[in-house]
Every structure is written in C-alpha cells, then in structure tokens.
Design a protein around this nucleic acid. Sequence first.
DNA 1: GATGAATGAGTGTTCATTCAT
DNA 2: CATGAATGAACACTCATTCAT
Lengths: 198, 198, 198, 198
Amino acid sequence: MNDHLFLSMRIKDLHKQEAIINATVELVNEIGFVSSSVSKIAKKANVSPATLYIYYENKEDLLVSTYVELKKKMGKELLKNIDISFPIRDIFFLFWKNTFNFIEKNRSFYKYSEQFSNSPYIELVDQAELEKNFEPFFRIIQKGIEQKIIKDVPFEILAAFIFYPVTSISNSKLCTGTEISDEIIETSFNLAWDAIKL
Amino acid sequence: MNDHLFLSMRIKDLHKQEAIINATVELVNEIGFVSSSVSKIAKKANVSPATLYIYYENKEDLLVSTYVELKKKMGKELLKNIDISFPIRDIFFLFWKNTFNFIEKNRSFYKYSEQFSNSPYIELVDQAELEKNFEPFFRIIQKGIEQKIIKDVPFEILAAFIFYPVTSISNSKLCTGTEISDEIIETSFNLAWDAIKL
Amino acid sequence: MNDHLFLSMRIKDLHKQEAIINATVELVNEIGFVSSSVSKIAKKANVSPATLYIYYENKEDLLVSTYVELKKKMGKELLKNIDISFPIRDIFFLFWKNTFNFIEKNRSFYKYSEQFSNSPYIELVDQAELEKNFEPFFRIIQKGIEQKIIKDVPFEILAAFIFYPVTSISNSKLCTGTEISDEIIETSFNLAWDAIKL
Amino acid sequence: MNDHLFLSMRIKDLHKQEAIINATVELVNEIGFVSSSVSKIAKKANVSPATLYIYYENKEDLLVSTYVELKKKMGKELLKNIDISFPIRDIFFLFWKNTFNFIEKNRSFYKYSEQFSNSPYIELVDQAELEKNFEPFFRIIQKGIEQKIIKDVPFEILAAFIFYPVTSISNSKLCTGTEISDEIIETSFNLAWDAIKL
DNA sequence: GATGAATGAGTGTTCATTCAT
DNA sequence: CATGAATGAACACTCATTCAT
C-alpha cells in the first residue's frame, strides 16, 4: 500500500467517523434518545452497523464519546473572544451571548446533549474532566467574588443562574423559528447579572 | 356483597394501578427512561405485562399519564400555603421554598419528569393544559409587573429564573445526600429575587 | 324469578348467542380468519369475552359450531322448492340457482365458510354429519345415474362439477358488486349440466 | 477469496432462504395458516426469528412472496409439454393431467396456496401479475372459442370448470394416500371437456 | 347468566452485538 | 478497514382463557 492510498484511506476513515457522529446527533434530534438504535444510526451514516464497532467499543461508548466531544467544542465556543483583561461584567455578557449563539448554531447538538444529560449515561462521564473545558471561566467567577463584584455564594448556586436560564429561554417560543434577537439576549442578561452581582 | 368486600375490591384495583405508576417512576429513577421497558415495569409492580394494558392504552399512555398526573400534584404542592394577600416577595419565597421541598420529598418523581420532558414523549402532552395547574402563580407574576415590583420582561425570561435554577441547585452536590438546608434555599432565593425584581 | 322475567331472559340469551355468531361471521368477513380473536368477537357482539364461554366451550367450539350451524341452514336453502317428482334436469337447475341465491344473500357467511374449510379446524367437523343436510340431493344424483341421465362416475367427480364451480363464479368479477344475473346462472348451468349428463 | 469459497457462501445463503420457504410451506401444511407464527417457522427452518427479517420485510412479505413464487413455478409446470400446434382437446387434456400431477407432487404447497388464497393476504397479491404465468393457456382458450370448439361464454365461467374441479377432486378421498390414477384423471377430464366444448 | 379484571404464554418485530469474509 | 449476514434476547403488545363477584 503506498502513501497516497494510505492517506486517502485515513481521510475516508475520518469521514466515516464524522458521518457516524453526525448521524447520531441528527437521529437523536429527530426521533429522540430512546428510539435511536445502532442500526438506525448506521443506516443514517451510510455505514454497516459493524463499522460502528471499529470506531467505538459499543453503543454506550459512541453516545458518551459523542457527548464529550461536543462538550469540548462547546467549551471552546463559549469562551471565544473572551479576554480576561475585560471588565467582569463584559466577560459575563460575552459568555452569555456566546451561549445563545452556540445553541442557535448547534440546535441538534443541544437537543442531543440535553437528552443525554438526562439519561443514566451521564453517570459514565467524568464530570471533572468535562469541567476542565470551562475552567478559565470558573477562574473569572472566582476573581469576581474576590473583587466583591460577584456574590460570595456556593459555586453551584451561581451556576444555576448563569448556565441554566439560557437553555430555558432558548427552548421557549421566544427563540424558536427565527433568529434569537439581541434584545432578548440583553434583556435576559440583565436578569442574570442582577442575580449574581453583589 | 357487603360493603367491606366491595371496598376491598376497589382498593385492590386502585392498588394495582398505583403499583404500576410507582413502579414506573421508581424504575425510571433507577435505570433511566431509555431502559425502562413495559415488562420490567410490570415485574416491579408485581403484575403481568398484560395487566398494564387494562389501565393504559399503551406504553406511551402510561408514561404520559404518569407525567401529567404528577405535574398536577406538583402544581398543588407548589402553591400550598400561598395567600395572594401576602406581599409579593413573600409569595415568591414561599413558592421557591415549596419547590425545594417538593423536589426533596419527590426525588424519584422529579428525576422521572426531567427525563420525560427531555424525551420526544413531551410533545404528546398538552402544555396549555399543564400550565393551568400553575395559573394562580402566573397571575401573581402579572400583578407584580403591574405594581412595578417585578421587571416588565417576557414571561419566558422571568420563568427561566424562577423555575429552572431550582432544578439545577437541587441536583447539585449541595442538595444530595442530606436534607436541603434553609440556608441554601434562602441564599439562592436572594439571587432569584434580585434577578426578577425591578 | 317469575315466568315473565324468565322468558325475557331466555330471549335475551338467544339474542346474545345470535349476536356472538353474527359478530364472528362479520368479523371474519372483515379482517379474516387469522386476525379474528375472541376479544374482538366479544367486543363486536357487545358482550364480555367471558360471556362467550357460557355458550361455547372455547374458541374452537365457537368457530366449529358457527360453521356447522350455517352449513345446516345452507342445506335447507339449497333444497328449497325442490320436488323430487320434477325432472332431474329441473331439479339440478333449481339447486344451481338456489346455490347462487344463497351465496348472494349470505356473502359474509360464505366467506367465513370458505376460510373455515381451508383451515385445520375443518378436521374437527364430522363430515358425514354435515353431508346429511344434503342427503336428499345425493339420492337424486343416485337416481339420475340409475336412470342413465347422469354419468356413472364416482360421486366426488360429479360433486366437483356441481358444487365447486359456483363458488368460483360467485367470487369472480362477474358476480361482485351487482346482483347475480339470471343469464350467468343459466349460462353456467349449461356447462355444469353438459359435464354431468350422460 | 477463491471461487470455491465464494460459491459455498452463496449456496449457504440460498440454503437459508430456501429453508425458510420450505419451513413456511411445511408448517402451514401441518398446523394451518392460522397457527403458523414467525417463531415457529424460524424454529422449523433452524434459524433465528431475526434472520427471517433479513430476507423478508415482515411476515406478510414472507407469506406473499412464498405464494407468488410458488404460483410462478406452478404456471411453468402446468404448461409443460404443451405444444400449441396440438389439437385443442389434447392441449386441454395435457393441462388437466399436468394439474393433477403438479398437485400430487406438491401437496404441501397446494395446501399452502389454498389457505393463502382464502385469507385476507390474497388481496395483497397483484392478480394480473399472477395471471401472466398462465397467459399462453388463456390464448389457447380464446383460439378454441374462435374455432367454435369451446363454448363462447365469459372466461370466468370456463375457468370455473377447468381449474376448480381439479382441486376438489384432488382433495377428495379418491386422490389421497395413493397415486392419482390415470383413470380418475381421464374420467374427470371427460366431464370438464363436455362442460366447455361446444 | 354475565362480567371486568387478570394473566402466562404467545405474537410479530427490533435490539446490540459478533463473525466470517 | 469494512461489511452483510446472523443471532439470542428483548421489545411492545395481544392471545385465549379463568375467576371472583
């Protein structure tokens, strides 16, 4: 086998794996987590069910990996354009805005991750590992507390007002169908900021 | 037939249906929505799979009915002890506290409803019908806006700070294992109130 | 219990049994022998599945009894208006015509009996007993052979040309939708008579 | 991969499908159409129930395909040795004889096809497509009518005396157990020919 | 006589996974 | 690497039948 063939094969392989991941997310988006079977995923990805087991140990591994991979990507996107030298409020606003944008651009992924994190599979994911993707932001929160800009309350309580409301609003009728308006993003951020600011 | 026998018969029947509902919720709590099959539910409820179809048309009907029934119960509990003549902030605090208490007392139900509302089954539920259970509270929010106590923003945005953070906090390590402390309830309420108050 | 009540009950009972038989035949006519279950029959007859077991030992007994009962009725109808003093050809024609008329008036029964006689249940029926209903006609055939009007061949061969073609023609597009025309009856009888006559 | 292996693979596959078809026909022959379930068929064919769904879409597809396939085979056999230059009566006799022979050699198939054509499944079969297998014979009938050898009556009436009586006779006690005698074939053909000849 | 509730055994079908090629 | 064929076990659901009332 020469290099050319080897290279083309590797590309093909990546395509296959990518096709499998996309098929998984799309299928869950279409018919739900419960009904998404291996053979349906394989059919959607235009591969044999057996092929799937070359890239993943089993169904569980596929679902978990897909989730983790997407969470990594999310971590990067949410921290995009953020400069720690910005004022804290601006950082939070950028983060808030990035979250809305990410959800809007990755609706199918988002639906997947919501279903995944509400299934028992979530327990197979190393949460600490996941949170590393968001660590820079955690440090900013800490800094805000120290600078007496953010309320000094347990992290989980702050998180409940920084991460969760976005999901709720994004799924509401305010945000389905058309583009999420800047007005909604700004209005809702005011509430979030009022909640956490000292 | 005497009353005693008649009564015992009715009780027995109710017991069966109740056993099925409980088994459903418990099983979902244990092994998740995805893996909860009809036969497993039946086995847990100590009835034949066929018996299940006496009380419910099919699996979907069982799952949806269970969800709707529990949401009704939840509506009642969250509004418990609330008097509309109270100051608005007090009402919100009571509602907040009731939510925590309800979740703590009905953990298995709550897990069920979270999984359910993140499955495609949720689309089978008439949301408008469900929201009727919370209508009194919606009117209070409206009153708060009119009295310029609550921010005048779309309802869905307010809801995102009133309903969702509780779930997040309840599921966090702050609230698992031991009783949810009054301190956490009060601390977190301060954030929620700051978010929505004008 | 007084006579009046007793009488009304007996009438009611007959109605029930009749309703069960009718439901059986109609259901088989609608969804076929394979799919016709006891509970569906009961539902169609507006009785409980359990009621069915008051009148019949089991499903097999119901199906067989229904078949036998209807075959009895058929025997009577096919021999209607037949006078053994008539010329043999006239008797055969009347029998032929009666068969067509019976099928037309009892399509649903006929479909039932065709499905039944092509199922293993048919082996549970005492054929000799059934044939008694047609015995007068068998004697006429015998007489025809003796008088050298009918071909002297085994009875089963004659029967194949006297009984079976009617079914075939009745099920063909010649006879569905509209009334079976006298012309078809007469034309086809000519073939049957040519077949068996010496 | 060498030819031998390739061949053996294909043979193996064909064996599986063939085993399924044979099991279907045999089982229907033994316990009837009504009781022949997918799992029983699979067990008889020594395959998993799931394997059956590799070759057929569902039970209906299996039953219909089996019927259609066998009808095709029947078409070929019934027209065997027939030369359209033969005298019309000879052609009909050969066809008659071929029918008896086919039934005798394929009893289990024949029982299957009788049960099938008396079930609702028959409506799923494209009758026009089926009749193509017998078209040469239909043309001969037409020729006979034109040559004033066969009675000029609707096709369905002729068919009722050409096709149906054979079934009736074959199922009678004249033909079960031992070989069907030439005498019966000839005797019965005389009746059929008398019926249709002008 | 009549029934609704109940069920173990069965239905047709799909599952996640493996294996020979 | 990639696959179509294969499967035992499970799926949601219906079956014929019984029984307490």
